[in-house]
């Protein structure tokens, strides 16, 4: 599972930068639909459980976001009714739905991003820009669960000496909460000094620090990256030439199917579907490997 997750972090990261950037950029209905479909497919492939779970609040969000627009925007020519002398137009309703699709798609893509771009991959990339800050993040990531554990220990210990967060009025509970936070901070700061010593003792601060990672950039990463750039470039050029423009106001622009726009749709789909294709390809290779033996 998740063949794409094993690619080099830069490939995964750029994939999402491209995909999310283009998704936010295009308002063209066909582009919207392609992106929505691909994000759903990828979510189902890598992130099925939490994706289906998230639909519970995504669907109402989708509807609300779609309904807001006709209420605040009264542009457009095809008026269907008036509310308080304000015209409600078909253009505004459709535009609202389009916006809603876009927002949901972006959220789906981010769901996939969170699944594929784990913290160590993010830190690896961030470390290239700002190694010291990446180290801070790494330390923080280690400290947070430790602090949560300690909060538990402090809460228990304090309850037994009469400082109980779970009972009493709100003021008492806030007081207890602050009390616990205060104990935690002292503890954390005092213990941090030893961590700093441990960093120093292991030579942190020497000149010419290198960064190590378990990731290596392979041929397949280069290949995928090249394909991604080619597909991206085609799409960007297409946009500059105006093939991806679409207007909802004053009324809908016409959808024309030219050979060139077909090419753009295909490249866009290919770009978005890269992880899915890679996944299927790996599955195919795996199966043929087993059947050959």
């Amino acid at each position: 599972m998740k063949a794409f997750a094993n690619y080099h972090p830069i490939v995964i990261f750029l994939y999402f930068v491209f995909v999310i950037g283009l998704t936010m950029f295009y308002m063209h209905p066909i582009y919207l639909i392609i992106s929505l479909a691909m994000s759903i497919l990828l979510s189902l492939q890598i992130n099925q459980k939490s994706f289906l779970h998230s639909l519970k609040w995504m669907v109402p969000l989708f509807v609300i976001a779609a309904l807001i627009n006709p209420l605040i925007s009264h542009d457009g020519e095809k008026i269907i009714l008036y509310i308080d002398d304000n015209p409600i137009t078909i253009e505004a309703i459709v535009y609202g739905f389009a916006m809603s699709v876009m927002i949901c798609t972006v959220i789906f893509w981010f769901g996939c991003y969170n699944k594929l771009m784990t913290s160590d991959k993010f830190l690896y990339l961030f470390g290239k820009i700002s190694p010291a800050f990446a180290l801070i993040i790494s330390l923080t990531l280690r400290l947070v669960p430790r602090f949560q554990q300690q909060i538990g220990a402090i809460t228990q210990a304090q309850r037994a000496v009469g400082m109980d967060v779970t009972s009493g009025n709100l003021l008492h509970r806030i007081k207890c909460g602050i009390h616990i936070l205060s104990i935690l901070i002292t503890w954390a700061l005092e213990n941090a000094i030893e961590t700093a010593d441990s960093m120093k003792a292991r030579g942190y601060g020497l000149p010419k620090r290198s960064t190590f990672s378990l990731f290596s950039f392979e041929k397949r990463d280069a290949l995928t990256l090249t394909i991604m750039f080619i597909l991206m470039t085609i799409n960007v050029i297409g946009s500059f030439l105006g093939y991806t423009d679409y207007y909802f106001y004053p009324t809908f622009s016409e959808l024309v199917l030219q050979p060139i726009s077909l090419l753009l749709y295909t490249t866009y789909t290919l770009l978005l579907a890269l992880p899915i294709i890679i996944e299927l390809w790996e599955a195919f290779k795996w199966r043929s490997l087993i059947s050959n033996n």
Binding site: S138, L139, N191, S198, M199, Y204, L206, S210, F212
Partner: peptide
């Protein structure tokens, strides 16, 4: 203290931490 000396969030990174400081290559 076993806890306080650990700097990073991953075991492999912790093993490499000192070597990174000394500037060794990958």
């Amino acid at each position: 203290s076993p806890e306080n000396q650990i700097v990073t969030d991953k075991v492999w990174h912790e093993l490499a931490f000192g070597l990174e400081n000394l500037g060794f290559n990958t």
